[in-house]
Design a protein around this nucleic acid. Structure first.
Length: 495
RNA sequence: GGCGCAUUCGUCUAGUGGCCUAGGACACAUCCCUCUCAAGGAUGAGAUCACGGGUUCGAAUCCCGUAUGCGCUACCA
């Protein structure tokens, strides 16, 4: 590995950026950065029918969000460009032409219908499905005649009928396949576009890729790629097939397992640094003990030797925990700023926008250690932003107290607060704690009732801090409203 | 069906022949702290290392077989 390492991430823009895919990108990037090599992004848009508009942008956004930067590729260019396969068709055509001329590939005129029929027949007879090589030995005149008559054709690779194709996978060790189990696969489709097999080997060669790190699902097609490298006279790169990301049922992670797009995780309020840390631990480990690491530390320690070969279930509970750790670790100003877009998005529409950053900075410390995801914050802090609380009288009355005592509690508190010269966490505590004793109720009962009155909820951040942020005026107003609600409830029970 | 890869607590993993009566983390349980919720601290439960054979003085670790899971088997990547 003394030569400069060059790796690539080659997504196909057929939809949202899947986390499994992004994990592959991450491992490539970590590997490149660890070794001081280059990380290249190449768009593999050779399937015209499945290409989705906006997918490229979404994929690049996902990478940018995580802080994965690329040295060559879309937007940044590079000396091996273009980095979009649909703009490199001439290269694949030239490669196919060379293969045909050498006798390593041939035109096939079989129709999709015929191939379908053939496969069904093979399945019915419990034969391994595969192309029956009908066009393999078509003579040049025969082929030309079919072409002139307007028949569609593809180009297939002439797979050796015997022998073995063996290679060394960095993660899995020595792997070998019988050539007889590999059929004559298509390299150029009838629309003139190459298949992945041809396009990737041509590009990997031209872009001087030294290591191909991709998901395990590609392991079985590696012998095809090796055959192509050999036929083209190219030196193949090293291969490392990464373990796959699995859903909870151990099948390949997909939409039906829940959120799979990296963008969805961003929108739910996962921190990119937490996501990156978590993803890096799916199939790789430092020592089995160290789990919380900065990107720098991960890069410093990332080696293929510590990548394991077993598929990993995407365990969202652990991600949630880790995200909570990262949230708690944030400096308060940083945390406040990250919270802003989530509050802007999630708070009720009648809350006036734009929100005040100064006000958010006061609220933020109260919830920072209470959330695992940023999208939980709006619900937790809504009472700081809305004008009118809706009280459930039941939550105002603390456990083991009566409606009457509750009224006394609120009235006493109201008086006590009114006399407070200064409305701060400390002053509130000094006046409220003795008040419980004077009222002969437990602090929990007093604080609970006040919490419900000032926040409208039984669960909220610590009382004194919360009230201090709310301010004297709002607290008093809310306590009065609570009292009114209590009166109404009393009338109802009486009447 | 064929071919390939994989198999350590529910989950992510450590382990590369003796340090393993298998370690860490998440989740879970109990307790402590406590104005609720969190956070934090402590403790605990949880794995006959898929199974069966070998090799070896000694195996989670090496070999073989079986089972199971997953992947591929497209003019998708």
């Amino acid at each position: 590995m003394s030569d400069k390492i060059r790796v690539r991430y080659a997504p196909s823009p057929t939809g949202y950026p899947h986390v499994g895919n992004i994990r592959t990108a991450l491992f490539n990037w970590l590997f490149a950065r660890h070794h001081g090599g280059s990380f290249i992004v190449r768009i593999e848009d050779t399937d015209v029918a499945r290409t989705v508009e906006g997918a490229v942008e979404a994929i690049l956004d996902g990478l940018r969000w995580l802080g994965i930067d690329w040295d060559e590729g879309p937007e940044v260019g590079g000396k091996f460009g273009p980095y979009v396969q649909s703009q490199r068709l001439d290269k694949y055509k030239a490669a196919a032409k060379k293969l045909i001329e050498q006798g390593d590939a041939y035109y096939c005129y079989c129709t999709p219908e015929r191939l379908d029929e053939m496969r069904n027949e093979q399945m019915k007879n419990k034969q391994p499905p595969g192309y029956d090589r009908r066009c393999r030995d078509l003579s040049v005149p025969e082929s030309t005649l079919k072409w002139m008559s307007g028949m569609k054709r593809v180009v297939r690779f002439r797979t050796p009928l015997a022998g073995k194709t063996a290679f060394h996978d960095i993660i899995r060790g020595d792997v070998s396949f019988e050539n007889s189990t590999i059929d004559d696969f298509v390299i150029i489709k009838s629309d003139g576009f190459p298949t992945y097999h041809l396009a990737s080997i041509v590009d990997d060669h031209e872009m001087e890729i030294t290591h191909v790190l991709r998901a395990e699902e590609w392991l079985s097609s590696t012998p095809r790629h090796l055959m192509l490298y050999k036929a083209m006279g190219y030196k193949p790169p090293e291969f490392a097939h990464l373990p796959m990301l699995l859903g909870t049922d151990r099948s390949k992670l997909s939409k039906r397992h829940g959120s799979v797009s990296i963008i969805e995780y961003k929108e739910q309020g996962y921190l990119p640094e937490a996501m990156l840390n978590f993803l890096s631990l799916l199939g790789w480990s430092l020592d089995g003990k160290t789990e919380l690491m900065t990107v720098k530390e991960i890069i410093k320690n990332f080696t293929l030797g510590r990548v394991n070969s077993t598929g990993a279930i995407f365990n969202i509970e652990k991600l949630d925990w880790m995200n909570g750790v990262y949230i708690r670790d944030l400096k308060i100003d940083d945390f406040s700023q990250r919270v802003v877009p989530f509050l802007e998005r999630d708070l009720p529409p009648d809350v006036k926008r734009p929100l005040s950053l100064d006000y958010i900075k006061k609220i933020a410390p109260l919830v920072q250690e209470r959330v695992k995801k940023l999208n939980e914050i709006a619900e937790l802090t809504e009472f700081f932003f809305i004008d009118n609380l809706e009280y459930d009288p039941n939550i105002l009355v603390a456990k083991k107290t009566t409606l009457e005592t509750t009224k006394v509690i609120l009235e006493t508190a109201l008086k006590g607060l009114d006399e407070l010269p200064e409305f701060s966490e400390e002053s509130l505590e000094t006046v409220l704690r003795p008040m419980a004793e004077a009222l002969a109720v437990k602090t929990g009962q007093l604080f609970g009732t006040l919490r419900s009155a000032t926040t409208g909820s039984e669960v909220a951040p610590p009382l004194f801090q919360t009230m201090a942020v709310l301010g004297k005026e709002r607290c008093m107003k809310r306590i009065k409203e609570a009292l009114a609600v209590l009166d109404k409830a009393k009338d109802k029970t009486a009447g």
